[in-house]
Design a protein around this nucleic acid. Structure first.
Lengths: 223, 223, 223, 223
DNA sequence: CATGAATGAGTTTTCATTCAT
DNA sequence: TATGAATGAAAACTCATTCAT
């Protein structure tokens, strides 16, 4: 609507890191933390700018308004998690190994990107209306389910997987067991005095995730 | 800034239903939803008053200020939760049946108490300072784990459960699969077009929960 | 959308002047001057509030936002000019006298409400888009033309007016000769050194207006 | 704050059409429209640059700051107006024909130079301080009234015009009926749904202007 | 018990302007 | 010559809170 909310994104010669893109990225990173911690309404543009080390005004320069900062943060976050899955070379693995590989990736990603999980939860709390407005949403829609589907088909074809298990089922199981321990870590700590993120339970619950996947998809005879 | 605000007339002689208490309750109910959805910062006193159908000014009348509205909401939520703790008479059931019974209860519980869960999560995001100020916090501490432990012991003693599975493991699995579908429903809807709360997936995922529990705790031979 | 942009307008007992309505009116008056002098974009809410002797915040309390302050100003201005015409008892006058009466009223009104004219011009400069959003616009639509039409019909029926002269023609003539001298007074003063608003030319041009009306509508024989 | 900004290279050797001058001109044209529509305060440098198809930064390059853009626009507008003053050879026409010829010219002029008129009016609204800083202001002073006086004298001498009608009267009538339809077109459209600038009313009102002039100046017997 | 009026402090957003290349 | 990046100052707008009745 004004100035230039997509600041010309000159591809940049990639030799020099491109200071402009750096600043945009710094704002996105700061925004991710802020929105994750306070939710959309509670987030303060001023804090974001301060964290990124520039004037609040730059948020408008790069993104236009608060909502679009938020959407940009969400979009990049989802893009990141999907990108991290793309390097897995799943087709080269045995079906169960492929699922385990994906599950470990998800488990790790949620652990190392706790802000992502918070962000997603915050968005959920408010009904997920904003997330639907992300422009590249469609690109992400099936990025999560498609790889799973291919693996499941292979597994069934090889006779190692039960028929009738859907990609949604598996994604649900993996997501729940990857996300919950981060989402509710503080709650469990304060109410049950259990440290979900500690090394011991981490090991145990990653193992549990892998076993549960196996129990879900494999035909009983498979050991 | 907010030192325990005490409304001019507190409990009333309780003979007549007391319109005053009704309004206070309406404000608390509205506040619960609002704080659950937007967090402390994002919550708007105006929306709360509107939802309760009275002037914003009433919030100050009954509670003093925003923070005290919030604390009152938290406190009552805990009180409600405790009141709803019915007994399941678990000891009368077969171990696996007992677990399934508990799991179903948890599954339902998360579905019907989304706001409480959100409230707790929001608190965690922001450091959980406020929740500490509520006197009724300690109640849940072992209420969740103790019954599980007894069931597991029975199961192991009867030879139907594997040894080495802890109450935390089971509670973790149950909680994750009960909570995730509620916590993440909005983004799954927006992004994957999957309706986690719909009847079909509800059935499917409750079933999945029960199966996963069985896979977790039962010795392989058990059908 | 929030708080109360139509502050309950309790009819007020009309005995005491109602301080709330006074403040609203003071803001409208100040707004009229401000918007007339600076146009919509140039107008400053701060100046309006200062002129009305209250906090800027009150503009939001009473009107919601800048645009709605503007629309309220416009609406009341048009309502004022039409109201001033309603007291004329035109039906009791001879057709030509009725037109003259209306013309004098318009001439005077523009002279004594120069801000109205500025306001209208400013609105015109920017394309008149806003004015169409005034809620009671329809009420005003024909308030200007209808009385004229009735007079013209009477005149034609009595044989004193030419047929074929429309209400729009007469309204155009009256408006132009009432408005122009105010609209362009400053220009004429600085470029032609002619004082359109001085007593001498005032008399002359009011006379001229009456004569031009007569020339426009009367059948030639009429003296 | 703005002491005569002189762009690095001013007139260019004028051999090649000079893309630089083109851009400057494009900015002036865009500026004329913008300042005419929104006034000085309301005008946005960003819109001007966008309309001219270049970066906002160019306005600073060529003019120094907003005020100097404005002054440059005003100055060129006056220059343009002066350049367009063609001769009508009025002395060769019958007095009434001469007035009609002048009136038609004025009627057209206002229609085609709306922006200039707006610019002048905006200036007046805000005290006309800036216009005084333009060196070419004096030009119009008597250019308008002198020809009229000569025609009126001829008409009176020939016995076709009433005595006592002044040049100011006639100029007033012509200007009002030429200017009003342009100045107030937008609100008449919004409020009365009358299209003052449409072909039908244009014809009608030009005719009306000519008749009104005749009624004003001619001795009654003249047909 | 209840409410409308009023507001200060802060938050988002806009705008003219400067910097560096 | 031209432009993208960056910004301080000011404007619009919001929110919790208090006043007066």
């Amino acid at each position: 609507m004004s100035e230039q909310h997509i600041p010309t994104k000159v591809p940049s010669t990639a030799l020099e890191p491109d200071a402009s893109a750096d600043m945009r990225q710094a704002l996105l990173d700061a925004g991710k933390t802020e929105f994750a911690n306070y939710g959309y309404d509670g987030a303060r543009l001023e804090r974001i700018a301060a964290k990124a080390g520039c004037a609040k005004r730059m948020l408008y320069y790069y993104f236009g308004n608060k909502k679009d900062v938020y959407l940009a943060v969400i979009e990049q976050s989802y893009r990141d998690i999907r990108a991290s899955e793309e390097q897995l070379n799943l087709d080269a693995l045995e079906p169960l190994q492929a699922l385990h590989s994906l599950a470990k990736k998800s488990f790790d990603y949620h652990e190392h990107n706790q802000e992502f999980t918070r962000l997603v939860l915050q968005e959920n709390f408010q009904g997920g209306e904003m997330i639907g407005q992300v422009s590249t949403t469609e690109l992400l829609r099936n990025a999560a389910l498609e790889p799973l589907e291919r693996i499941l088909q292979r597994g069934v074809a090889q006779g190692v997987f039960k028929a009738g298990v859907t990609a949604v089922d598996v994604h649900y199981l993996i997501s729940a067991l990857s996300s919950f321990r981060v989402d509710h870590a503080a709650t469990w700590h304060s109410l049950l005095q259990v440290d979900l993120l500690g090394a011991a339970l981490r090991e145990r619950h990653q193992q549990l995730l892998l076993e549960q996947i196996k129990a879900l998809v494999c035909v009983p005879s498979v050991k």
